[in-house]
Write a protein that binds this DNA or RNA. Structure first.
Length: 421
RNA sequence: GUGGCUGUAGUCAAGCGGUUAAGACACAGGAUUGUGGCUCCUGCAUUCGUGGGUUCAAUUCCCAUCAGCCACCCCA
């Protein structure tokens, strides 16, 4: 029979890998809690309309990347392609705005996007994210960046680059787009094909074109950052000031344009140069219009998302080791039927006391049982045979030093309890 | 969605038209009496992602398909 494999762009996380996931998840939770953020969990699927409104009709995500389907009750359902919209939906639905503000939330969630898979880009992937609702103070934008940087720092990741920009508010962006179209209108036909397409769809993207002829053509293109209104400019200055207060180095990069429609003002990216073309390890910014757009009261918001797979890739490419889980406390090797039965009794008692213990179930020879104990990284091993049962006496072997001491079998439980403390 | 590279055991791989498909690691067993890690020995692919085609003959050539990687695109 033919094997069934995982769908394209998905993968299994197997035991030799999963401890790393547990580690970074625990660390992320820990850091978030220290920063005063609370965990929120939302469903893996939502009504499709949430993403149409929350992410934006014009985005690639909505236009071609969503896993959407009709359920048996004829509802239009979509597997979440990102984490922010569901959290905003929940904030509104559960009236969290009625609580003390700001609302500071974090989440760990799988996301789904139908894209061409590549290193650091999967169809089923995972995000860590935070959102803060209820304040437009740029100090909070800086705080979320500080949280991300603190997280990376505690993993000892270096060589990350923080790039910040302001994409303005709806008013200054509209004016800017007019300025941009005006500037470009005389040169469109000299731009590359993709840029001509961008001119229609999202003229801001032309700024970051890599084609030489385009670069030349747009050398003095007006930048958003130079055309933001007074208010947006002040907030951007506030952001920079707060980053400086926290001693977080940054680069202003006027070419950062977030792909999701809802961003306003602050946009930022944290980039790793070691993991290939998909180097954005964290991306986020402010989205002051989103909550209202999804039917909530006018409430400002800011947040970020980081890709867990990309994080793990970065760790790997920087040779950063995650502490390996330790082995079992004791292995019980047996010779003969009676001993094996006795071991089952003892094993369960040990386990009930919180001692990590195991025995062989493959009818291995004594020698092979020791090899197995070694593989399980057992701290101690005892051998039970008929003699030991008769005399109530076993050799307790320390697997690291190889030393054995003779002990009473009946006292092993108390002894192990004291040993693992 | 576009272009390019790749696909041989659990893993990394050699072979690139011709009877039994190297090697390493991993895994399993053993090296006389009931003790692991080192060493040594033994075993482990009727088959080369899948399906077609060319040929007397294909893992080796061609096509398709699937999957992985890389770049674009996009983004976390």
């Amino acid at each position: 029979m033919k094997n069934i494999q995982v769908p394209r762009g998905t993968r299994d996380v197997l035991p030799p890998e999963v401890y790393k996931w547990n580690y970074v998840e625990a660390l992320f939770r820990h850091i978030c809690e220290k920063f005063g953020y609370k965990e929120i969990r939302t469903p893996i699927f939502e009504h499709t309309e949430l993403f149409h409104r929350g992410v934006g009709e014009t985005t690639d995500i909505v236009q071609k990347e969503m896993y959407s389907f009709k359920d048996n009750g004829d509802r239009e359902i979509t597997l979440k392609p990102e984490g922010t919209s569901p959290v905003v939906r929940s904030f509104i639905e559960n009236k969290l705005y009625a609580d003390t503000q700001p609302t500071k939330l974090y989440y760990i969630t799988p996301c789904f996007r139908y894209e061409r898979p590549q290193a650091g880009r999967l169809r089923a992937f995972h995000q860590f994210g935070v959102e803060v609702f209820g304040t437009s103070n740029p100090a909070v934008d800086a705080e979320t960046i500080g949280l991300a940087m603190a997280f990376y720092k505690s993993l000892d990741i270096k060589n990350l680059e923080l790039r910040i920009n302001s994409v303005g508010c709806p008013e200054c962006r509209r004016k800017y787009n007019d300025t941009l179209r005006n500037y470009l209108s005389t040169r469109v036909d000299r731009l590359c094909k993709t840029c001509q397409d961008r001119y229609e769809r999202n003229p801001m993207r032309i700024i970051d074109c890599k084609v030489e002829s385009c670069k030349k053509e747009i050398a003095d293109i007006p930048l958003m950052l130079d055309h933001v209104c007074e208010d947006c400019r002040n907030d951007f200055e506030g952001l920079k000031e707060n980053l400086t207060l926290m001693e977080i180095p940054y680069q202003v990069d006027p070419t950062i344009v977030r792909g999701l429609d809802y961003y306003t003002k602050t946009a930022f990216e944290i980039i790793s140069h070691e993991i290939g073309a998909q180097g954005t390890v964290c991306g986020g910014g402010r989205y002051d219009g989103l909550i209202e757009c999804l039917g909530g009261p006018a409430t400002p918001g800011v947040g970020f998302a980081m890709g867990v797979e990309r994080l793990l890739l970065t760790l790997q490419n920087n040779n950063i080791e995650i502490p390996k889980p330790k082995g079992i406390d004791i292995f019980i090797a047996t010779i003969g039927e009676n001993a094996s039965k006795e071991a089952v009794k003892l094993l369960h008692k040990l386990r009930l006391e919180g001692i990590a213990a195991d025995k062989d179930h493959m009818n291995r020879s004594l020698k092979a049982q020791f090899k197995y104990a070694d593989k399980l990284h057992a701290a101690y091993t005892i051998v039970i045979g008929d003699d030991e049962l008769d005399k109530d006496s076993v050799q307790l072997k320390n697997m690291e030093t190889g030393q054995q001491e003779e002990i009473k079998l009946s006292t092993i439980l108390e002894l192990m309890k004291s040993k693992i403390k």
